[in-house]
Design a protein around this nucleic acid. Structure first.
Lengths: 263, 263
DNA sequence: CGTACGTTTGATCTTTCTCAATAATGGTGG
DNA sequence: CCACCATTATTGAGAAAGATCAAACGTACG
């Protein structure tokens, strides 16, 4: 199965690479793996599923039995409070493993829902766990992945907690742009935002109305231009400034500005 | 070294158990370990340090060279925005490993500062990494720890993003109480809050003034009583209600209300 | 015993929310 | 291909939670 030909995603016209290779490539951006480790990953048993937008990949309270990799399309993690308001906690992009969280912790503490139609690859929980136990380097790669996600989550706490609406929106736009570009999914000057303004509101803890007003002012100030969901950065430098954005927390390779050595 | 006698923490009168046993016990609350694994952990080389309140354990941008375990005392993770406001991201309690994040990711994306005077045990980064590579079960335990921290972080995003001030404060009090009690550090009816109202404000993304007012209303409504930093729960059930608190996200053992099985 | 830090209180101001209505847009069936 | 419908986006007016500013009061500690 490791050398199966690339698939094509029916109507959406996105060509899909071998799913496990996408996953492997993501791991290797932060964790070096031996050729044995790579082969072991490519030999994992998978099942491909094609799902519609809004499908749930995991629900809160589930006990997932497979770890799923997002092959194409977008998804988001969410939690709902007692009074029904929703908070989006992370946006998953192609290549992301959705379920390390649930893979090792049994009961899912949050839900994952698709933003767009998508193709996902399910890896059985047992196979994944055995792999990690048999190959410590892959375990370390998984640790890396989860720690990077934690880092992003910490930045989200800051974003939602301590920045005003304008900075919040600017920040999430910067984050998207950099993450997408790092996987070759967007150009440096703009991208197609896969979410509605309401979803953007749930990700930034604002109301859709206010998101709309802020987007307008960002546009009026010449920082972005947009036609519907397509965002173009007309002043990338200034946008980062407004956003208080520094890509370090994404722990992407390269472009490490200055690394202050510790004692 | 694994059966060394308990230490005593000089002036602070807190008796300190063998540091590595505290660490081991924390890991074992969520991850079963073989006796070989346990021995390997207890054989880790450590250096004990006694530090004053407000000391930094890690600074943003550091490249830490050891993984530090909080043996006694409290600490918090924090980030500071461009305009100087601070967000507290997590509170660390005795038994917590502070630096898994930085252990595997090189540059620290946030700072860790002590809330109180504390005793910490430093484990050299290399020793810890080798241990994880040599003993996959310990790797899995580390994954568990980091995933639980992620889960708590997600709940913090929700708390700060989607709950009003009253619920936020109530929630953080509930979280503390349950976490402290799970390590035998607090009684079910109250505890000594190790933070000032200003720090509480930075953890809940409020202002100190507003934290004060909310605490007063919680007291006036008979949910808590307090003398200075000591909080007593006079109506634990109602407080959880106000907080929209459900301990599931803490992934503590036992008391799993209902586990809905997934497909 | 005074100094610094933390807590408490009051008055006012601002950001963001809420409610409400209208205008685009894209998808669907005929 | 076109009309219709359900989303999504946009705009306005008023309300509210929480911030800000300012000051007084406690309390612990050197």
């Amino acid at each position: 199965m490791n050398l199966a030909p690339a698939h094509t995603c029916g109507s959406s016209k996105i060509s899909i690479e071998e799913p496990l290779e996408i996953f492997l490539r993501e791991l290797q951006t932060h964790s070096p793996l031996s050729s044995d480790d790579r082969d072991a990953i490519l030999r994992l048993p998978i099942r491909l599923r094609r799902l519609d937008a809004h499908s749930y990949l995991v629900r809160e309270g589930d006990i997932p039995i497979h770890c799923c990799i997002l092959v194409s399309g977008y998804a988001y993690r969410q939690k709902v409070t007692g009074d029904g308001s929703r908070q989006i906690l992370a946006v998953c992009i192609p290549g992301d493993a959705i379920d390390f969280q649930n893979m090792f912790l049994d009961i899912s503490d949050h839900a994952v829902q698709l933003l767009t139609r998508a193709v996902v690859a399910d890896i059985p929980r047992d196979a994944m766990q055995e792999l990690v136990l048999a190959r410590p380097a892959i375990g370390v790669a998984v640790i890396h992945s989860t720690l990077i996600e934690s880092s992003v989550l910490r930045e989200w706490v800051v974003n939602v907690g301590r920045r005003d609406a304008r900075a919040r929106i600017a920040h999430i736009l910067c984050e998207f742009a950099v993450r997408l570009e790092s996987r070759g999914l967007a150009s440096p000057d703009g991208f197609e935002l896969p979410m509605t303004q309401e979803q953007l509101a749930d990700a930034t803890s604002l109301t859709p109305v206010h998101v709309n007003r802020v987007l307008k002012t960002l546009q009026a100030d010449g920082l972005i231009s947009r036609q519907r969901r397509n965002i173009q950065f007309t002043d990338w430098r200034a946008l980062q400034e407004v956003a208080d954005f520094n890509r370090r927390y994404l722990h992407l390779p390269g472009e490490d500005e200055l690394a202050v050595a510790a004692i």
